[in-house]
């Protein structure tokens, strides 16, 4: 019980890091997707390069670089800031690819009908392609979110006191060894299973309405 309490103290930070990183990732992914779809070769190349750079380096290395390597004037990033920012930008690269795939899954006929009806580009994105992209992206997006929930444990390496950080601290202090990590694993499962269920529920509901 005491063990559970010690670990549970890390729960809010795990959730916070996950949500913030997901939000940063989602927002930053949008301009990257625009770049990946750009017909301008230079913009495309820069976006492509950025995605490959962000994905090619392990997240833990990004966190070390941001935490130990970056100082803006005298200001250094806190562990939480570095963790959220690092996981956020790496998420942006993956989410950009997910969004790009979902956009290209929208049939060409939808674009053609939109053009033929004389919709403005903004209308096409907000009313036609955007909503269909969002639906197509739901399964991959939640899969990524569940992955991110677990990857938030990487932030423990720079001292963000989330679940894994609290667990290893408890393990060292009490000498209870491996058991505490099983409890941590249980908490992760309790968090991720409902997310998966919600995703499937949404997906099925939308499929029912709009199945082609």
């Amino acid at each position: 019980m005491e063990m559970l309490k010690a670990i549970a103290i890390g729960l809010p930070l795990t959730v916070l890091v996950t949500i913030l990183a997901l939000m940063i990732g989602t927002v930053v992914a949008l301009p990257i997707v625009a770049g990946l779809r750009s017909r301008n070769r230079l913009i495309w190349l820069m976006s492509r390069g950025l995605v490959d750079l962000l994905r090619g380096i392990p997240p833990v290395v990004w966190l070390f670089i941001l935490y130990y390597g970056i100082s803006i004037g005298a200001v250094r990033l806190s562990a939480l800031q570095a963790g959220v920012l690092g996981l956020g930008v790496v998420a942006a690269a993956y989410l950009a690819e997910i969004f790009r795939g979902a956009i290209s899954a929208v049939p060409k006929g939808q674009w053609e009908a939109s053009s033929a009806l004389g919709f403005h580009r903004a209308t096409v994105w907000t009313r036609i392609v955007g909503p269909q992209t969002a639906r197509a992206a739901i399964p991959a997006y939640t899969t990524f979110a569940i992955g991110l929930l677990k990857d938030s444990s990487i932030a423990s390496t720079i001292g963000v006191s989330e679940i894994v950080f609290m667990s290893s601290q408890y393990a060292r202090q009490s000498g209870s060894g491996i058991l505490v990590f099983f409890v941590a694993a249980g908490i992760y499962i309790l968090l991720s299973v409902p997310l998966g269920l919600l995703s499937r529920h949404l997906d099925i509901k939308m499929r029912k309405a709009v199945a082609r």
Binding site: Q110, E112, R127, Q132, A209
Partner: peptide
């Protein structure tokens, strides 16, 4: 394009909108 209405082989209706919205949205926009 406003002068020409187009009908496609594969209809190209918007699958995420009701039939009424499909017909009404272009008029609004």
């Amino acid at each position: 394009r406003r002068s020409a209405g187009m009908v496609f082989q594969h209809f190209n209706l918007f699958p995420h909108m009701t039939v009424l919205r499909n017909v009404s949205l272009p008029q609004e926009r």
